[in-house]
């Protein structure tokens, strides 16, 4: 019933893409250019170029197709499975189109951009396969909002208890609550942790300070530490959650802009080939 994009319908697009790669490779091996080494200007070069261009435009169209909600009969998964396999197959088609001729020019720029787009996409596939499960395990059935609500509730309780435990401890608790930030800069989000976490620091310091509490307050001190420890655990879970989500999202910040760059450089490549060659 549930099928991953890779295994979709018995790997049908893997088979299609493999067929495409095999056919182009065989044709390339057999083909002997009339003049010079294999390159994009031969009949086969043009054919592969056209196929590659068509594929790129079709692959980029995915961004629009994905958002054409309620239209078209096919599942989006169907499209994505094809997008992945045919996108990977494009590496072979485009590389054969180059005839392995690279240089410091707009043509190679288009090729490099294409490779970067595909590489980022490949990372996307990896992220899509790896992180969903980790994310579910980390959440343990709670939604992010529930986790944040739990943290807020712990904060209220911690303030109440710490209010009766002297200014030092209360100050620590209050400062840590004010300073706590979830999310933040990209690197911190992606790492899924914060080495300078105020909650963790507060737990340690309150632990130290509570040693100095009078015996009558010791029980309260322990309760506060338990609350802070619970909060640290929740905060770490939320950070990991954000980290997983960031990993699943980050590659799109490369994949999509570079696709536009690719389309621009590809236009330059095609125009220059036809008008100035």
């Amino acid at each position: 019933m549930h099928e991953s994009i890779l295994a979709f319908r018995g790997f049908k697009y893997l088979k299609l893409s493999a067929l495409m790669v095999a056919v182009t490779a065989i044709v390339y091996a057999v083909h002997q250019p009339t003049v010079g080494p294999p390159n994009g200007g031969t009949a086969l070069g043009y054919a592969l170029g056209t196929l590659g261009l068509g594929l790129i435009i079709w692959l980029a169209w995915f961004g629009v197709r994905k958002r054409r909600y309620g239209l078209g009969k096919m599942l989006l998964e169907d499209w994505l499975s094809a997008h992945v396999y045919l996108g990977l197959g494009l590496i072979v088609v485009a590389t054969l189109h180059t005839g392995f001729q690279f240089g410091w020019n707009v043509h190679t720029l288009a090729y490099v951009l294409m490779i970067l787009v595909i590489a980022s996409g490949a990372f996307g596939v990896f992220a899509y396969l790896r992180y969903p499960r980790l994310m579910t395990e980390n959440r343990r059935g709670a939604t992010q909002r529930e986790l944040l609500t739990q943290i807020a509730e712990l904060d209220v309780k911690a303030r109440e208890i710490s209010a009766g435990l002297g200014d030092d401890i209360h100050g620590e608790v209050m400062r840590a609550q004010e300073k706590l930030a979830l999310g933040g800069p990209a690197r911190r989000q992606l790492s899924g942790r914060d080495p300078n976490c105020p909650a963790t620091a507060a737990l340690k310091r309150v632990g130290d300070l509570s040693l100095g509490l009078p015996v009558t307050d010791a029980e309260k001190g322990r309760a506060l530490i338990a609350l802070l420890a619970r909060k640290v655990e929740l905060v770490e879970r939320v950070r990991r959650d954000l980290g997983f989500k960031a990993m699943m999202d980050v590659w799109l910040f490369v994949h999509v802009p570079l696709t536009f760059g690719l389309l621009a450089s590809l236009t330059a490549h095609v125009v220059s080939v036809f008008f100035y060659w």
Partner: peptide
């Protein structure tokens, strides 16, 4: 809508059924 539930059709990874 022709083609059925939009949520299922728009799931890129086939998670929604």
């Amino acid at each position: 809508i022709d083609g059925g539930a939009a949520c299922v059709r728009s799931c890129p990874t086939g998670a929604a059924i």
